[in-house]
Design a protein around this nucleic acid. Sequence first.
DNA 1: GAAATAATTTTTGTATACAAAATTCAATAT
DNA 2: ATATTGAATTTTGTATACAAAAATTATTTC
Lengths: 230, 230
Amino acid sequence: MGKPLIKSENLDQKAYQIIKTMIENRELMPGQKIPQEKLAADLGISRTPLISALKFLEQEKLVEVKPRRGFFVRLFSLEEMVSIFEIREVLEGLSARRAAESISNGQIRNLRTIFEPFSDTRDITDFQAYSKADRKFHNYIAHISSQEFLRSILQTVNLVSLAYLYPTKEGLIRLPNETIGEHIDIVEAICAHDPQAAEYTMRHHLQKTSNHLKHQINSKISMIKEVNSE
Amino acid sequence: MGKPLIKSENLDQKAYQIIKTMIENRELMPGQKIPQEKLAADLGISRTPLISALKFLEQEKLVEVKPRRGFFVRLFSLEEMVSIFEIREVLEGLSARRAAESISNGQIRNLRTIFEPFSDTRDITDFQAYSKADRKFHNYIAHISSQEFLRSILQTVNLVSLAYLYPTKEGLIRLPNETIGEHIDIVEAICAHDPQAAEYTMRHHLQKTSNHLKHQINSKISMIKEVNSE
DNA sequence: GAAATAATTTTTGTATACAAAATTCAATAT
DNA sequence: ATATTGAATTTTGTATACAAAAATTATTTC
């Protein structure tokens, strides 16, 4: 501890990347307070660029500030998760449309590679690997969607990351066998340079996911009602 | 100059609001460098909270950083303006849908008030007042769209403000007589609690605006080609 | 021993300090 | 006069300092 992990300039941007990864990897747990002095020391920087990095993460909703209390890793409710998927639905729909318009042959090969390990089998057992491929998939489409500005918006509103931050409990995430077909449909629509189909399949995919979450919320509420009426 | 316009705590948030207004009002002009020392002195604060405020505005795309050069008021190209309207199309479409679902009777009255001064006449001459009402309209719909999280995303990606930052040249902005009907349609759909119609009319409205901009770009390009072939 | 209060330590929010880089401006050469 | 070089000035990026607030611990009171 205390070794300077970072060099000298743009320390805030570098700290931002590291902290973001720490949150995504759950080295910093949702709800947890972020110890400024200690984290700065660990990164080998002062509080000034650290706070700057945390401000960035605040706007990306990965972190929240409680005035005079400090920074905390953001914790999402089920309702907020539904919101995230609803917003992803429209933004990534647009993103997929643009991707279909501008994708290059090299990018087509890359895109097809992502779900290749899973396309053969009907039974996907390695959930971790599949989840990782899923994230890579959504981020890659954002990456190839031509418009620089749309890309930067999708980065600022880093919804793909947020979507994976909710504690993964039983039944909340849809199973690979259920989503793999949708993923393949999106890949094929984009690779066929079909903007309309790309947007439609992407929206359909994310709509199903948010509907799934809504259903979970409803069954949760009815469970609470049952308990209360006893 | 030099009077402390701000009190004592959360100076960054307060500076953020002031600077944002300054940019929107063109007291700070697009492309202009932001003089940190001077602006901090004018606001009666130090550079620390000022930089914090500028970082916020950077993520809202109102400001951009050139490393080792400083902060500059963001300047948008026509292409970027098209992107902004395309993203607004999908996000504000969602926003209008949610607004239609949750709008209260009081909010209905407020929403109807915004374009009241213009609904009678067929000839709207006060462009400034109309433009102001337009912004208020879009911001208000974002405000009433139930979901707190969607609201905060729309705030972070402050597209409504960005949409008005492009230097308003001849023919770039559609005329009030052309848009007032679309605005009224959106108002009526939301007030009728019709989510589908609300989303459709909003998307239609913003799509027409981005198409208008695309057309401007194309005629610009053909003009350049003509000049080059001479 | 639990609750209330006081003393101590830690942390936050902001200001200031300072080296390194960028800019400005003057001096010199072409 | 214009271009080039070099010193002086300004500005950036980061560290450090410090008062005020919050959290923690110790102390007293009932």
